[in-house]
Design a protein around this nucleic acid. Structure first.
Length: 728
DNA sequence: TGAGTAGTGGTTTTT
DNA sequence: CCACTACTCA
């Protein structure tokens, strides 16, 4: 193996592999082969240094990256590394918490709450305590609580705020710790943890419990952390507690790609690494093995405008390549249509769809592209919008599974108690809750003994009892029945397929498909599980997996589809061709980030991340007007474009003067591109027939009839509004 | 008491 | 344009 990889790595990468015994800080530019270096380092440890896989901890940013690392490592080593600890922080923390459950205030079957669960729990709290949702907006409060947790601050650490003043008179800052206290109590009552809790409890456990800390310090002899620039204080503390003793730690990161400060990530962890770990060695990887020079030139020029960074210039030996294109469109619809046309053209040039990605700042932007792609039969996969697991029907089904697994979870039980409708309305539910709180039992226990709740009509009591009996039956079965069989039984027994199929509403009918897809995803999960562990997975194996699963993990590489995703989701990926769309003020940089220099710099890094995803073709675009809700507004080109030298781009010249258009509040229908006069000899593009040459123009404006000779051989007369000028 | 309907307010990014 | 809330009818 030694001879193998020494040829494949450059000098600095080799150093990353071989320097295993001291703290290592790897400053790795985009596309500089950091993943490869990490994998070889890991292989070196196992093969040459005879380190057992279970003594290695490797933290990645996504589950997908973890899976990839594991597979590539197995290929190199030629044997299974099942016992290697590789995964995201959240995944690894979940594992640790389950192992150490005896030291924790909740039980083994805890539920992991996502944002939707958090919101519904908080809504319930607001109702019970008469809190004003306008004065204390749910999301703002949740964000603040998250910030506290990321800094490892518990409600009791904020005690100075717990003055005995009536709730209504609290100002926001004083109210949040109060809500935080109640929120934490409620999570415990539900035997539930939110995402931040996974980190918080793990960090606190390692800090305060010497037995546990020693155990993991000894187990994880070698620690590697990817994307270190995007770790927060809680994550830092977890790593530090584990690694500060033996100090065999290797972190990899790039300050220019820090894009998660809103989640508490702090660049401090990279900047202070050499202070946190004495005798640390810093290695820089600057040679890029991904993109051609024109693309890197643009990337370097963009990031040069950030003041708070380590100077770093990417270079490659892959040749000059194509200059990036910049396109200006009149509106967002045109941007989507033209992007789709360009993608078809690339496809015809031999680039598979899976090597093409369309990136944007906000999830809402995906819809219009979907529409354009559907019209042209371009296969696509959206990564990260409405998460598959967030659709109503899937969440409902998951709520059933959650209650079956963790009966203490009132929140999930409330979600399904009348879903599908079984005649248990709000009044009955509040009577159940009232009884439960007076008797100091859970909602689940209450419905198991519903005959005791005299306030509810006997008829409804009977319905509740039937429901409760079903749940209890499944709860018993779940201990031994494979999760796939259990899921099928739940769906059958609730008659969900027919429930949705028989609806008049097409939205409801479409839910059937998702249910079927869910079953097949459970089936897929089961197969993989059986392959690895030689036994069928139970519900207890499946639920934690689902909770930490994200859309990016569901990306299926075998299908040939274009990828649509946010710039955030594109991190760590690479594509032959990349489109970055919506380069407008208030979109990129986003309006909500424009109030501070620091956050503008983060937006600029976001663009930098997008640009550095491209291997050979890069297309940037913006629209002069954009639809929002149901009206148009006018846009200005992004400041990030305005600060660049236009010569970095190929393409339209008038596009790169970045003329500002005065903002108007009233809606004026944007002039379509086709208002431009077409001329004989012009190269044009048609969505169906492709590229063509104008032979004759009859009339003016969008109504003009053009005679076009298409490269496909077809000669056609076409109304001007159906074709667009050829951009290349 | 529950279910269906009209009106209202709200979009950053994610584990 | 969509998801959620408050209101009305069966």
């Amino acid at each position: 193996m030694q001879t193998d990889f020494k040829k494949e790595l450059n000098e600095q990468q080799l150093q990353v592999v071989l320097e295993t015994e001291r703290p290592l800080l790897v400053l790795a530019g985009a596309g500089s082969g950091k993943t490869r270096s990490l994998i070889y380092r890991c292989a070196w440890l196992i093969k040459e240094k005879k380190v057992s896989p279970q003594n290695i901890l490797m933290v990645t940013f996504t589950n997908k990256a973890a899976k990839e690392m594991q597979e590539r490592l197995q290929n190199i080593l030629g044997f299974s590394v099942r016992y290697l600890w590789v995964g995201t922080f959240h995944h690894i923390c979940t594992q640790i918490l389950r192992n150490e459950i005896t030291f924790l205030p909740f039980n083994r079957n805890f539920t992991i709450y996502d944002e939707d669960d958090q919101l519904s729990l908080l809504k319930k709290i607001y109702k019970e305590h008469n809190l004003d949702r306008e004065r204390f907006p749910l999301k703002t409060v949740l964000n603040r609580i998250s910030t506290y947790k990321n800094r490892l601050l518990l409600p009791e650490d904020l005690n100075e705020y717990n003055l005995e003043i009536s709730m209504e008179t609290y100002k926001f800052d004083r109210m949040v710790p109060k809500i935080y206290t109640i929120y934490q109590q409620n999570l415990l009552l539900n035997n539930a943890l939110d995402f931040d809790d996974l980190l918080l409890y793990t960090a606190k456990l390692l800090q305060n419990n010497e037995i546990v800390r020693k155990k993991y310090q000894q187990q994880f002899q070698y620690v590697m952390i990817d994307e270190y620039q995007d770790t927060n204080y809680a994550q830092f503390e977890i790593v530090h507690q584990i690694a500060s003793e033996h100090k065999r730690i290797c972190v990899v990161g790039d300050d220019d790609q820090a894009i998660y400060s809103f989640r508490g990530a702090t660049i401090r962890n990279i900047l202070e690494f050499e202070k946190d770990y004495a005798n640390a060695l810093a290695i820089r990887l600057e040679q890029n093995y991904r993109s051609t020079s024109h693309i890197l030139k643009l990337a370097n020029a963009i990031i040069l405008n950030n003041r708070h960074r380590h100077s770093k210039i990417l270079w490659s030996e892959l040749g000059e390549g194509f200059k990036p294109n910049l396109f200006v469109y009149n509106d967002d619809m045109e941007e989507a249509n033209r992007t789709a046309d360009l993608i078809l053209q690339l496809y015809e040039e031999g680039i598979p769809f899976r090597e093409i990605a369309v990136l944007y700042r906000t999830n809402a932007q995906s819809r219009i592209f979907e529409y354009a792609f559907l019209q042209r039969n371009i296969p696509y996969t959206i990564v990260g919008t409405v998460h598959f697991y967030q659709r109503k029907e899937i969440r409902d089904l998951l709520a059933y599974l959650t209650v079956i697994f963790n009966p203490s979870d009132n929140n999930s039980l409330l979600r399904i108690i009348n879903e599908p409708p079984r005649g248990i309305g709000t009044t009955s539910v509040s009577r159940l809750l009232e009884y439960a709180s007076q008797a100091h039992i859970t909602l689940y226990q209450t419905i198991q003994n519903v005959q005791a709740v005299q306030t509810i009509q006997p008829g409804i009591r009977k319905k509740i009892a039937e429901f409760a009996e079903k749940l209890e039956d499944w709860h018993r079965k779940a201990q031994s029945t494979p999760v796939l069989d259990l899921v099928k039984e739940v769906i059958d027994s609730l008659d969900l397929i027919n429930h949705y199929k028989n609806s008049q509403d097409p939205v409801e009918i479409s839910r059937v498909e998702n249910l079927i897809e869910f079953v097949s995803s459970v089936s897929e999960f089961s197969e993989r599980w059986i392959e690895e562990y030689d036994k069928s997975p139970l519900l207890a194996d499946f639920l934690p997996f689902v909770a930490l699963q994200t859309d990016i993990d569901r990306v299926n590489e075998t299908a040939d589809t274009v990828y649509l995703m946010t710039l955030h989701n594109a991190k760590g990926l690479e594509f032959e061709s990349v489109f970055i769309t919506g380069l407008e003020q208030e979109l990129l940089p986003h309006l909500r980030s424009m109030n501070s220099k620091y956050s503008i710099e983060e937006e600029r890094r976001l663009l930098y991340v997008g640009v550095t995803r491209a291997k050979s073709r890069l297309f940037l675009s913006y629209a002069r007007s954009r639809r929002k809700y149901d009206s148009f507004y006018f846009t200005e080109p992004s400041i990030f474009l305005q600060e660049l030298d236009p010569n970095l781009f190929a393409g339209y010249n008038d596009a790169i003067t970045f003329k500002r258009i005065p903002n108007r509040k009233t809606y004026i229908k944007p002039k379509s591109l086709t208002n431009k006069q077409f001329y004989i000899g012009q190269k044009v593009w048609h969505s169906e027939y492709g590229q063509g040459l104008v032979l004759n123009v009859d009339g003016t404006g969008p109504e003009a009839r053009l005679t076009i000779s298409f490269t496909s051989g077809k000669l056609a007369k076409i109304i001007a509004s159906y074709v667009s000028p050829e951009p290349f």
